[in-house]
């Protein structure tokens, strides 16, 4: 086993662990925002690490792997942001257990203000 194969395998193992944790998070988390952050953060890092590992195992694919990593770095957060925002606009507000409710959910005021403008 060469050094490149060892590095690639380590990256693939890290990526698999993070993808598994992302899947577990989607299954375990209580509401949509928690599920989105588990599904986005963990799978972004997991997929990037896994593809980088494949690039180390097959050095001729490294350029393609880097392009895919850049694509994931753009597309994954944007789609997750769009999903979360659409959910908030449809008034699926997050459940807040903390006492400091006003500072925890500042975007709600903006939405309610917009609603008043539309109605008037």
């Amino acid at each position: 086993m060469s050094i490149m194969e060892i590095i690639g395998s380590i990256f693939i193992i890290i990526g698999s662990i993070f993808l598994f944790l992302g899947g577990l998070g989607i299954y375990r988390m209580p509401d949509i925002y928690n599920r989105l952050q588990a599904g986005t953060k963990a799978t972004t890092l997991g997929a990037m690490s896994l593809i980088l590992g494949v690039g180390f195992l097959e050095p001729s694919w490294m350029l393609k792997a880097l392009i895919i990593i850049i694509f994931i770095a753009f597309s994954n957060p944007i789609s997750s942001h769009a999903l979360a925002r659409a959910n908030y606009k449809r008034k699926h507000f997050p459940v807040i257990l903390s006492d400091d409710k006003e500072n925890m959910d500042a975007y709600r005021e903006v939405i309610e203000q917009e609603d008043k403008e539309v109605k008037s």
Binding site: F71, F74, S75, I78, H81, A82, R85, K89
Partner: peptide, 19 residues
Amino acid sequence: VLFSSSSVVTAGSKLLFPA
């Protein structure tokens, strides 16, 4: 349309479209 997209989505899709 129900509501317009945020600036993150508009700017990001401009980058992703050629790809």
